[in-house]
């Protein structure tokens, strides 16, 4: 974290992959300055193609959302509330009343779920769990069936459309697996100038996140909270976030569920239907033939 200089886990060489240590990201919007360096670094290192230069008109966000060719996405949240102990001033011309206003930046990314919907859904075995606990798509195995797309509760992974390079396959953040293998920090965390993105051991980060929430609350950020859905069937996420305010404003599902929880009752209905079909055909031909 800030102040640790070259000793921070974002800048040090490490051997997490060799030691099979679970790693994570802790992303803290209270220090993010919205520079989008993480988006750029990710694109450059991973050679992710551009997916159009469109203007959304939504604050300073022209990225839109995560997708096959957007693995980091800096959100620009505008809210009519104060940020911590900030003193609200008049925002409109010729109007003296106070208008609380806050601008929050948060770098969104694949959550590398503890129980990952995309991984469970993948029929080719292309999506795997790595030795650092991240979720990785093996591009050469993926045949582009698109099932992971609807299985991810966070809307992260997507199929890359033509005519982009490597079109047809599913893509998302790799947690810079190649960099981690050689003891390097993921590109996005490495470049983050304020260390809003912190990379490190998952257990360390969780403790750090909880401490950061306490600090912020002490400074008047009453609505600071961690976003790490451990109590739902997702079972926690390895890239977790600090949020100011509710999850919905960041486009994050408040109570995400892994779709495999529906399998039991759905297959039961399928079996009942199959038995019903046999009985119906049997009955029709025995009674009415």
């Amino acid at each position: 974290m800030i102040g640790e200089g070259t000793q921070s886990t974002n800048q040090r060489k490490h051997s997490f992959a060799q030691d099979h240590v679970e790693v994570g990201f802790f992303t803290d919007p209270s220090v993010c300055i919205g520079c989008k360096a993480c988006e750029v670094a990710c694109k450059e290192w991973n050679e992710v193609p551009d997916d159009g230069f469109t203007w959304t008109g939504n604050s300073y966000d022209n990225t839109g959302h995560l997708g096959a060719s957007t693995w980091r996405h800096v959100l620009f949240v505008e809210q009519d509330r104060t940020k911590g102990n900030q003193i609200a001033g008049p925002m409109s011309l010729g109007n003296d009343s106070e208008d609380p206003f806050r601008w929050i930046f948060l770098s969104d990314v694949c959550k590398h779920c503890e129980n990952a919907g995309c991984l469970e859904a993948c029929p080719t075995g292309s999506i795997v769990r790595t030795e650092v606990g991240s979720v990785l798509v093996q591009n050469d195995v993926c045949n582009g069936c698109g099932y992971c797309v609807v299985a991810c509760p966070f809307g992260v992974i997507d199929r890359r459309p033509e005519p982009l390079p490597d079109a047809g396959g599913a893509f998302k953040c790799t947690f810079c697996y190649d960099r981690q293998k050689s003891g390097l920090t993921p590109a996005c965390a490495k470049v983050c100038p304020t260390e809003s993105i912190v990379f490190g051991r998952l257990d360390d980060l969780r403790a750090r996140g909880a401490a950061r929430v306490r600090t912020l609350q002490g400074q008047g950020y009453d609505d600071a909270q961690l976003y790490d859905p451990q109590e739902t069937s997702v079972g926690g996420i390895h890239a977790f976030f600090l949020l100011l305010g509710e999850a919905e404003a960041y486009g994050l599902p408040p109570r995400p569920q892994i779709p495999t929880i529906y399998l039991k009752s759905s297959w039961a209905a399928a079996v009942v239907t199959a038995i019903g079909a046999i009985a119906a055909v049997g009955a029709a031909f025995s009674f009415f033939a």
């Binding site: 029929p123 080719t124 045949n143 069936c145 047809g168 396959g169 599913a170």
Partner: peptide, 21 residues
């Protein structure tokens, strides 16, 4: 409908009971 039809046989690389696909 596959994004990469030539790799369709990869469907039969593994069997995963937790994946309806």
């Amino acid at each position: 409908d596959l994004g990469r039809p030539r790799l369709f046989l990869n469907m039969l690389r593994v069997f995963k009971y937790q994946s309806p696909m």
